[in-house]
Simulated assay, not measured.
Amino acid sequence: METLENSELCFPHLLNASCRRPKRSHSEAILIYVLLSSLSLLTVFLNLLVIISISHFRQLQTPTNTLLLSLAVSDFLVGFLMCFQIMLIDGCWLLGDGVCVVYQYLSYIITSSSIGTMVLISVDRYVAICEPMFYSTKITHRRIKVCVALSWFCSSSFQSLNLSDNLQHPGRYNTCLGECIIVINYIAGLADLILTFVGPITVIIVLYTRVFVVAVSHARAMRSQIAAVTLVTVKKSEIKAARTLGVVIVVFLFCVCPFFCVTLVGEQTVLNASSSAFVICLFYLNSCLNPVIYAFFYPWFRKSVKVIVTLKLLQRDSCEANML
């Protein structure tokens, strides 16, 4: 009986201090491990293809694709962080309090920077569709790079301040050994909710609603052949890009909103690995879906993947290849 009880502990040799493992059948545990491991590898591989494509081929290095590159880097890192979540499926954290805090800290940075990138994508599409005459002057490659860098810097700085107590005292809020918990006070949690969710999501919805209305009006005008007379013509490629990125944003919101909704309705802003497993995995799934969306909607991505997989990427001057 004592052996059975000890086998349910994360650290059997520490009877009074160890956390207990959740009861789960062996087949269920194997299935979860296989699914999450496959999702992690697929996420890393697909987003690596996006990163290589945009970084290598000069023709793809446009302002809009620079934003997709930033998003792909976030998704690529999510694929690696998934390895830690896979460990938590067993119900025990075995890597120590320091690694636990770093894991949670990186998760927060990636989440907030991804949302920041989505805001920038919405702004990019808004200018392209609603103010096409000024797009080339307002949206430059250099400005986009600066905005992306600021997005990552602000996310890192804010989350460092937000999680300062946890970073200074790792494991302070753990109730037993084998637990991975961080606690955010009410004011910090409210600020995080407003600055990284409510505010950005509102901006995204408002801008894309305007983009949708203008895109529909342009489409109707082009069908009636009066666009050249009554409207400033928007390129069909820009409208197609807006539609594709709109899909990316909708899928992103669908996968990220549950995480913030759980935080919003919770009595305390406490993130426990076991209680938030579903919403975290849903967020991870989004990182795998983005490259799949590109494959369906962007011919240049399918073409670049073919070049990469066939190793034509190693040929001389391959970066100058026509991908469009």
Rank of each mutant, 00 (worst) to 15 (best):
R142S: 11
R125N: 08
Y108C: 06
V148N: 03
Y108F: 15
V123S: 06
S114F: 07
F153E: 13
S114W: 03
I109N: 00
P132N: 10
T111R: 05
R125Q: 09
T140W: 07
V127A: 04
V148E: 03
I129P: 00
I109H: 02
L120M: 09
W152P: 08
F153N: 11
C147Q: 06
Y108P: 00
S107H: 08
G116K: 03
I110V: 15
R142A: 11
P132I: 08
F134T: 14
S114E: 12
S112Q: 10
C147A: 15
D124W: 04
H141A: 13
V127S: 01
I109V: 15
T140M: 07
I139F: 04
S107K: 07
F134D: 14
L106R: 03
A149H: 12
S107Y: 06
A149G: 14
L150H: 09
K138G: 08
V119P: 02
S112C: 11
T111I: 09
I129R: 02
S107G: 15
I139N: 00
T140P: 02
V119K: 00
Y135M: 06
K145L: 14
F134R: 13
Y135K: 10
S136I: 09
C147P: 01
I139E: 00
K145A: 10
F153V: 15
K138A: 09
I109E: 01
I115A: 10
A128W: 00
M118A: 09
C147V: 10
I115K: 05
I129G: 00
S114T: 14
S155N: 12
R142H: 09
P132K: 07
V127C: 03
I115E: 04
I109A: 03
S136G: 10
S112T: 13
A149M: 14
S114P: 06
I121S: 01
D124M: 04
T111S: 14
L120S: 04
A149D: 10
T117G: 13
I110R: 02
V127K: 01
E131Q: 12
S136L: 11
T111A: 15
W152K: 13
S114G: 14
C130D: 10
T111K: 06
S112A: 15
V123R: 03
V123G: 04
D124E: 12
S151M: 06
T140A: 06
V146M: 09
I139Q: 00
K145C: 10
K138V: 12
A128C: 08
M118V: 07
L150R: 10
F153Q: 13
F153R: 11
L106W: 03
V123K: 03
S113D: 07
I144Q: 02
Y126K: 05
F153A: 15
S155W: 05
H141S: 14
Y135S: 09
R142Y: 11
V127I: 13
I115Q: 04
S155G: 14
K138E: 12
T137Y: 08
E131W: 05
M133D: 13
V123F: 06
V148K: 02
